[in-house]
Simulated assay, not measured.
Amino acid sequence: MNAFYIPIGDGRFESTEHTRGPWSPDAQHGGPPSALLGHVIERCEPREGFDVGRVAVEILGPVPLAPLTVEARVTRSGRSVELIEATLSSERGVVMKANAWRIKRSDPPLELDPAVLPSGSRPGPDTARGDAPFPSDQKIGFHTAIEYRFVSGTFIEPGPAVCWIRLRKPIVAGHDPSPLERTLAAADSGNGVSATLDWNRYVFINTDLTVTLHRQPVGEWVCLDAVTYPQPHGIGMAESALFDEQGPLGRSTQTLLVGRR
């Protein structure tokens, strides 16, 4: 099992143990199926000179460790922007869906004053700690198929955190992960790396994931500068500024269901 998913034909994929999440031994982490949706979105009627600028994923129910069917179609086509819809289904029906905006790159590139561009960086993965324990008793899962290194915080240290994440395995067997796949897989961990509540007493499960990119990621590492905002009424939000080793690249948000176990 050298990948998160194995293609089995006709848009169907076998899920491997590497997709397992922290909440149930029978349910997937949100990162791999979000990246799988990104995989098919990028291959849906591809157009030269276009990049995906935003992906919004809705998590309609637990994603089982089972065969999945993934489909994508262009629902709004245009000269400069187009909208793609994708669904991910198990034998129980649709369990995730996504909308993605694909946007035409400017050619020639725009001449911009560097002063108006986003700046800043985070200490790189080479200077970060890679020994933080992950709060799961599962021997194999998403946490064993990624490499994570913390600049600040840890999974079990409450509060904001800065964490670099790199996939150890491809999302789909036989395909190198694209920058979009890497980013979607990592971004779904924002509520985990910046957890503010005890994993043993509370759940803080995201119902969605929205990733907006102002440039395409470069390299294997994605950094989350993440913070979680839980509220007593049980609705929360996690927000992550996204970086690669060249600097800022976008932002992700997650709506959270917060409750006692």
Rank of each mutant, 00 (worst) to 15 (best):
H39A: 09
R12S: 14
V218P: 01
D188G: 04
D26T: 12
P22I: 15
P170S: 11
E111G: 00
I171H: 07
S121Q: 08
N99D: 15
I156Q: 06
F13Q: 06
D137Q: 02
R54F: 02
T196H: 13
E82K: 01
G38C: 04
S152T: 14
G30H: 05
I6N: 10
V218Q: 14
E82M: 07
S194I: 03
R122P: 01
L249Q: 05
M96S: 11
G250T: 06
L88A: 09
G30D: 01
L167T: 13
F155Q: 04
V116F: 10
V172N: 03
G120R: 11
T19N: 08
A187K: 01
V193H: 03
P217A: 13
L167M: 09
D225N: 07
P32I: 03
N200A: 13
I41M: 08
T196Y: 10
A3N: 10
K97A: 05
Y5A: 10
P217H: 04
V258C: 01
P177S: 14
V258R: 00
H214S: 10
T183A: 10
H175Q: 12
D198P: 04
T210R: 12
A145L: 00
E147R: 06
P217G: 06
L117A: 12
R122H: 05
F204L: 00
A35R: 07
S119G: 15
I6P: 02
T87A: 14
R79V: 00
E220K: 13
W199N: 07
H175A: 11
L112T: 03
V116M: 10
W164D: 13
A238Y: 12
S252D: 04
G30L: 10
C223H: 12
A35P: 02
P158S: 00
S240W: 00
E85L: 14
L224V: 08
H214I: 07
V95T: 13
P158T: 02
P133Y: 05
Y202P: 05
G21E: 12
P170C: 12
D131E: 11
L112D: 02
R92S: 14
I59F: 15
E17V: 01
Y202C: 01
P33R: 07
P179T: 10
P135M: 04
I140C: 06
Q216D: 08
F142G: 00
Q216C: 05
L213E: 09
K169M: 12
D208T: 09
S89I: 11
L88E: 05
